[in-house]
């Protein structure tokens, strides 16, 4: 373990914590959404630093790109600019959160340390994937071969979840447009009608 690596790691994590606290304290919704985009970008940088390049790629495209866009679209649709009753500190939730956090931190004391190659999480099937998957599938990227081949069932389930979520959004918002303005034959409504028939 190289001191520069440790420094970058700690620096990025502290930045993320600072952004998270800023999100908690801010009551301007636009600022909250933008900070959440920054938070995702910092997470992506941290993943690159932790050698998870595929994950970083996904986080940068999805977390910082698409999800910020969706939050902004929601802000525009709901016309919400500020939180109505912003109370920076509420005592009971703060006590619950602090107590839960303290217990979780107490729980980490027994955990294997960060970067430990002997940690149980890195033992079980991982060495087999690392040694055998390039030979068995002929692909150098282990993440792709584990994702699509060894854990194909898992990924199939995830794709079905994405499909279901997309279909859910279409059902929730696709219908409302037609129902609110029943007399107007807009394009989207027409499409839905045609497909029903």
């Amino acid at each position: 373990m190289n001191p520069a690596d440790i420094f970058i790691d700690i620096f990025l994590l502290l930045l993320m914590a600072a952004v998270a606290i800023a999100i908690v304290r801010s009551h301007l919704m636009f600022a909250v959404v933008m900070l959440s985009g920054i938070f995702s970008l910092l997470a992506a940088v941290l993943y690159v630093h932790l050698t998870a390049v595929d994950v970083a790629f996904t986080e940068a495209a999805v977390g910082a790109g698409v999800s910020t866009l969706l939050f902004l679209a929601t802000l525009a649709l709901t016309h919400v600019n500020v939180e109505e009753k912003h109370k920076p500190v509420r005592v009971v939730p703060l006590v619950i959160v602090t107590a839960t956090g303290a217990m979780l931190i107490w729980g980490t004391l027994d955990m294997p340390h960060y970067g430990d190659p002997e940690a149980p999480a890195n033992k079980h099937v991982a060495p087999r994937y690392i040694q055998e998957s390039p030979k068995e599938t002929g692909l150098p990227n282990m993440v792709t071969s584990v994702l699509a081949s060894y854990r194909g069932y898992d990924t199939l389930g995830e794709v079905v979840v994405i499909f279901t979520a997309g279909a859910g959004v279409l059902v929730i918002l696709g219908r409302s447009r037609r129902r609110r303005r029943p007399g107007v034959n807009d394009e989207d409504g027409d499409n839905l009608e045609e497909e029903r028939a």
Binding site: V62, G63, V66, S67, L70, E158, V161, A165, G166, V169
Partner: peptide
């Protein structure tokens, strides 16, 4: 991550 954004959209 991708499932997360899909459910966030929902």
């Amino acid at each position: 991550i991708v499932v997360g954004v899909a459910t966030t959209a929902l």
